[in-house]
Write a protein that binds this DNA or RNA. Structure first.
Length: 201
DNA sequence: CATTTGATGTTCT
DNA sequence: GAACATCAAATGC
């Protein structure tokens, strides 16, 4: 299963399973300057829509912003957080079910010089933080609703397999407002990204 | 070290 | 006008 991830992958109703399987896949962008960058996904969070208080689409709340999440899986949901950070999510599930997966971390892999320019100074080995990777990859709120089978933002599977014992599952970050749902184990991350440094690419 | 704060803009009440 | 799926720099021990 090499190559570009097909739209059908994102139509899967098992959003939690998808969030885990995204680890190790490559996130590609070809945005502002038409140059290709990619990073290995190292951290994700699942947001399960209507029944999930931490989700923007909790209780099927439909607004201009959240409409994107109600689309069929396989499009980008990009929104602005705290006035500064553009956060990138992947919409999953079928049309009308507002599930999404937030990408919280990547390991820069391709086009690192471009990513470093965007980042300002140096480019760390591990870009941990949802606002940081979008900056380095050139993802902007203008990419909201971008289909992930095009040539602007897409994922590729390069057979990087993350063993189960190297995946840490835990509660999501920054969602304390969500009451009991804040404690749900919907966050997935590679336990020690540094240990993969030599195996990758 | 840990903790607080300032930046900044869109959305929702 | 408050809140917000954040981050880096400044401040306080």
């Amino acid at each position: 299963m090499m190559g570009k991830v097909p739209l059908s992958f994102y139509h899967n109703p098992d959003t939690l399973g998808l969030a885990e399987r995204l680890l190790g896949k490559l996130l590609f962008t070809k945005t502002d300057n038409n140059q290709i960058c990619a990073g290995i996904i190292s951290e994700t969070e699942a947001y399960l829509g209507a029944g999930d208080k931490a989700s923007h689409a909790w209780n099927n709340r439909k607004t201009t912003r959240t409409q994107t999440m109600f689309l069929q899986g396989g499009v980008a949901y990009v929104y602005l957080c705290y006035g500064i950070h553009h956060l990138f999510n992947i919409v999953t599930h079928k049309d009308g079910i507002p599930h999404a997966i937030l990408i919280r971390g990547v390991i820069p892999a391709i086009g690192k010089d471009i990513m470093q320019q965007r980042n300002g100074k140096t480019l760390p080995f591990h870009l941990n933080g949802p606002g940081k990777l979008t900056k380095a990859l050139g993802i902007h709120t203008r990419h909201d609703r971008t289909a992930l089978d095009g040539d602007t933002i897409w994922l590729e599977d390069r057979n990087i397999n993350i063993p189960r014992e190297n995946i840490i599952v835990g509660p999501r970050i920054g969602v304390d407002y969500a009451g009991v749902d804040a404690a749900l184990p919907y966050r997935f991350r590679i336990s020690d990204p540094l240990s993969f440094k030599n195996k990758l690419l």
